[in-house]
Design a protein around this nucleic acid. Structure first.
Lengths: 230, 230
DNA sequence: CGGAACATTGACCCATGTCAAGTGTCGTGG
DNA sequence: CCACGACACTTGACATGGGTCAATGTTCCG
């Protein structure tokens, strides 16, 4: 139930440790990608999975007509590439300078063969992603622009808190376009909705990428769909 | 790429055989549920997974304010319940009288412990579901009502063909409300879009639940977003 | 300082939602 | 066999949220 009140809007990734992988990751090679550089593109053969060390990556698909759906963002600690069989199903592009650990996928197969529980843990990791993706679908499918953006901001607030920072102020690493393509809105609507939240004195924007939450309770009401009030 | 031109709109299930499970399923107990009866509800403890033998099941989540998102439909051969850890994440309700095989989830754990490759196969099965869910998200997020409904109908057409029937005529087991909640549209919009496709002479509706495809090429153009023509 | 990229704001429009009748269609009981 | 009610579907009139197009502002970096 709590996933409904607070839709995850989590990155399409897995954060929980996968035991057998940890030691491999520690020795894995490091890769740097610059902002806007592609880590991989849709259709590329799946040779590695990655773990973000620093920076941020946007994961997205593109429709024939050029429309873009951002499927998630990956931050430090997140794994990228799980679930791709044979070839990658989406594009992974850095939204800021990023460092990642690279693991050959063959490691997955080895680990699964050696440790019978490992395959099952992979399964559980994907189950979490599936749940997050469904929550995102609920959010983009059934909610108003305001509800979507507020849910998005609250997800960041919680992430900030989880990392030991204040939940009341944080940096958004991505552009309005990225947010829009994630939430299924246009740049203009995202911008207008930010302005609306500012006008309602629910947030402040010291810079366009820096969010300060003023009234988190009211924001949570909005996200839960209990809006149409003050 | 082909998944983009022909978004899957597959049920949230797995159709490929999972080897080790097959023999268990053959001896598994059979359960009958009537139309509108619940197989399980969100929050129920996950005690079994199921395979549909006959009939059809709708899988959906409900938001706090009552809005509903149908996440998928399960048809004969499809597995239900994979990926739910501890408790079910959605409701499963029969849309027609349905028979299912019931497997205690403990079987999954046993199979994974016995056969190291089995856990990995589960992982692969979920990866397929994840890809289908993302395709559904693309469809509901980025496309017009007409594109959505046409994609939906073409998915049925392909399913019909796969089962050895003509791809040009088939039965829809679900109501307009189910379709709407799946595609993120209202009943009225679904109905109007059916009427529009009829008027354009792309389909016929001998009964409201029976669809006859008249011009499948043009439908495929519409689904690919190459519309705004004829 | 200049220019590119990103963000904001305004005016307008349209697809789809909402509300409200109608119209089948099916199953049950008289 | 018909009458009735329930339910699903269709259709119409109208409202509106968010998309589109078009300036204008702002920030950042070379």
């Amino acid at each position: 139930m709590q996933t409904l009140s607070h839709p995850a809007l989590q990155p399409v990734v897995n954060t929980r440790p996968l035991g057998a992988l940890e030691e491999s990751l520690a020795r894995a090679s490091l890769r740097r990608v610059e902002a806007k550089e592609f880590l991989f593109a849709e259709g590329d053969p799946t040779t590695h999975i990655f773990r973000v060390e620093t920076g941020a990556i946007a994961l997205y698909k593109i429709l024939a007509d050029g429309r873009r759906q951002v499927v998630g963002f990956a931050y430090p600690g997140d794994l990228i590439g799980l679930g791709a069989q044979g070839e990658h199903l989406m594009n992974a592009q850095a939204i800021k300078p990023t460092r990642l650990r690279c693991l050959p996928i063959t490691i997955l197969h080895h680990a699964a063969a050696k440790d019978p529980a490992f395959g099952f843990r992979l399964y559980e990791a994907l189950a979490g992603e599936l749940a997050a993706t469904r929550d995102l679908m609920l959010t983009t499918g059934l909610r108003s622009a305001t509800e979507r953006l507020v849910s998005f901001l609250l997800a960041f607030s919680r992430r900030s808190e989880r990392h030991g920072h204040t939940p009341l102020e944080f940096e958004l690493p991505m552009t309005r376009a990225d947010i829009g393509d994630f939430l299924g809105l246009t740049i203009e609507t995202v911008s207008r909705t930010f302005t609306k939240l500012k006008t309602l004195r629910l947030i402040e924007l010291p810079h366009s990428n820096r969010v300060k939450i003023v009234d988190i309770d009211e924001l949570e009401n909005l996200a839960d769909g209990e809006d149409h009030q003050g």
